[in-house]
Amino acid sequence: MDWYYEGERKPENWKNICEAFKKAENTSLQSPIQLCEKTTEKFIYQKSLATRYQLTQFETSFFNHTVHLTPLANEELNVLFFDYKKYILDDIHFHLPSEHQINDESFPLEMHLVHRSRDNELLVVGITVLPNKEPANLEKYRLDSLALNPRISGRGLFVPVDVAKLLPLKMQYFHYTGSLTTPPTIGPVDWIVFKNQTYMRKGLLRAFKENVGKTNRPLQPLRNRTIYLSD
């Protein structure tokens, strides 16, 4: 079913498009949300977070209104361990502006690193992005061309990306249970959103904005759930 970020089929009306979208939205806690240090619970017992990312070849594509990167190599090259459970990186994609807000602040772009466990459980890492004059990791691997020509039909560009270098230098993170942010917005999804930002050159951010456009779902009600902040 077709859905959009503006017009009659904008996010506020996704649940009216079809029964599957309605069920997903009504039966799970939804994302994105406001993440505020003052209202979070600190981890009493620190849940372990570890990543094992390597330089990997990705294939680009354009669907669900944004750019996606899909790893081509052995799936074991890019894994994340959270609370001693292993998740494999499935997809990287981009939202403009950021979907989550951190301490009432929005950011020009948010990257989502979508991971899946062997039991088909979802964990998404959210990384908010600020502009920087210096080239960041993505520019080294021809993502400029991708941003300027996002609507690639068929097989896309092949780009090597060192996923570890997409992460912020400071790894403090929020953790909560939510949903996917595109239809059907199913849950539960474990979310890890880094408190600190990574950087992208202003020109590339501008190219994403001009060629991809607005792709963020509005903030969703917190409802009765606890947001955690790591030490």
Rank of each mutant, 00 (worst) to 15 (best):
80 L>N: 03
80 L>G: 07
85 K>I: 11
93 H>C: 11
73 A>Q: 05
92 I>W: 03
73 A>P: 03
109 L>N: 02
104 D>C: 11
107 F>R: 01
99 E>K: 00
106 S>C: 09
81 F>C: 13
104 D>S: 14
73 A>H: 00
104 D>V: 01
93 H>S: 05
89 L>Y: 02
101 Q>M: 14
88 I>C: 12
105 E>I: 06
94 F>Y: 10
84 Y>L: 11
76 E>F: 08
75 E>I: 15
100 H>R: 01
79 V>W: 01
77 L>Y: 09
103 N>G: 11
78 N>I: 09
94 F>Q: 00
77 L>K: 05
83 D>I: 07
105 E>Y: 04
96 L>E: 03
79 V>D: 03
104 D>E: 14
75 E>S: 15
101 Q>Y: 10
101 Q>T: 15
105 E>D: 12
106 S>D: 08
82 F>V: 13
109 L>F: 08
77 L>P: 01
108 P>L: 10
98 S>K: 01
80 L>F: 09
99 E>N: 07
107 F>V: 03
108 P>S: 09
110 E>I: 07
97 P>D: 02
85 K>V: 11
81 F>H: 09
107 F>N: 01
98 S>F: 06
109 L>K: 00
74 N>T: 06
103 N>V: 08
93 H>Y: 10
75 E>K: 08
86 K>M: 15
83 D>G: 07
100 H>G: 09
109 L>I: 08
97 P>E: 00
74 N>R: 00
82 F>P: 07
82 F>T: 12
77 L>A: 06
80 L>A: 12
95 H>V: 08
88 I>R: 03
92 I>A: 12
106 S>L: 10
103 N>F: 08
73 A>T: 04
106 S>E: 10
93 H>R: 02
74 N>L: 12
107 F>E: 04
86 K>I: 13
80 L>E: 05
